[in-house]
Amino acid sequence: MVEQQAAVLSPETLIDEFKKNGVTHIITIPDSETNYLYELMLKQDWLDVVPVSREGEGPSTALGLNVAGKTPVVLVQNTGMLESGDSIRGMALDAGFPLVMVVGYRGWTRRGKTPDTAAVYTEPFLHAMGLNYYFVERNSDAPRISEAFSEAQETRRPVVVLIGDEYHGWNR
């Protein structure tokens, strides 16, 4: 029998947090765990979804939007975050703008070791880059998302929201 997660992080919670924090653009590459969120984002008339071709485009596209006075969010999976290393360095950390990156924690498990190296290297990568992060797993964690926005604004640095969603709660 498959163990069911007691509470999940619903896509609607993410949308509410984006709206509450004045997000104008979501720069993203869809992944298998965010499909319903993607569809829901497209339905929001206050939100512009910007699909890109590789994740490294995220921080740089966000920089341009930030210069234009907008509030972008980068939504990618941890594999894509790893791919984005130099873009995070040059276009986010060095640029001096607030940026929230919502990162799907593929391979994360609450039961100890994971065989997925995407998960194995996620937090060491964040530490190496000096990126602070907030772990979010269920709807009750939503205030941490707003905390991430506040911290990004105060520090004018990128801050990561790590979505630990072991049972694909973002999908329906």
């Binding site: 653009h25 490294g56 341009g64 210069v67 234009a68």
Partner: peptide, 13 residues
């Protein structure tokens, strides 16, 4: 390689 994306973002904004 990322200036292109930044300019794209600026145009969108």
């Amino acid at each position: 390689g990322q200036t292109t994306s930044a300019a794209f973002g600026l145009a969108l904004g």
